[in-house]
Design a protein around this nucleic acid. Structure first.
Length: 135
DNA sequence: ATTCTGACA
DNA sequence: TGTCAGCA
């Protein structure tokens, strides 16, 4: 079994994850409800989180502190997820946590334009921005 | 003792 | 997001 498999192995109860991330059970469940994480379940329906889930939660916590709301975080995480599966990150690929607030704004702006081309086309740029980012 | 879902004086 | 209820 390789390291990647280990990182996705279901190991921790929500109680342990709470201590590891300093997030409340309410928050953790809320993020799952919004598809930011997808922890496994035990026979008894209890959540089992992997190292990846914990990292993801820490990432979410950081993004939240930096002003992003659920929608904005989902956009970033979804993109990051579709980048990693492909090639091997040669150098130091930038994860949302490594981005400066300005870079973050830049990326979000592009995401906004993209989103604008689809479902949210009716919303004006400004409104869309406020929909994803606060400040 | 823990966690889960649903709901809101 | 907190918190309480009623289960498993």
């Amino acid at each position: 079994m390789n390291d990647m498999d280990r990182r996705s192995m279901p190991l921790f109860s929500i109680g342990i994850v709470m201590k590891l991330t300093e997030l409340t059970a309410r928050q953790i469940r809320y993020y799952e409800a919004n598809d930011l994480i997808a922890p496994e379940r035990t026979k008894g329906n209890q959540r089992l989180f992997s190292f990846n889930d914990v990292d993801r939660l820490l990432q979410i916590k950081d993004l939240l502190d930096r002003g992003l709301n659920m929608a904005g975080i989902k956009l970033l995480l979804d993109e990051e997820k579709k980048e990693i599966p492909g090639e091997i990150p040669e150098k130091k690929k930038k994860t949302p946590a490594n981005l400066t607030d300005e870079e973050l704004r830049g990326i979000l702006k592009n995401e906004l334009n993209e989103a604008g081309r689809y479902g949210k086309a009716s919303m004006r740029q400004g409104e869309l921005a406020r929909f994803f980012v606060r400040h």
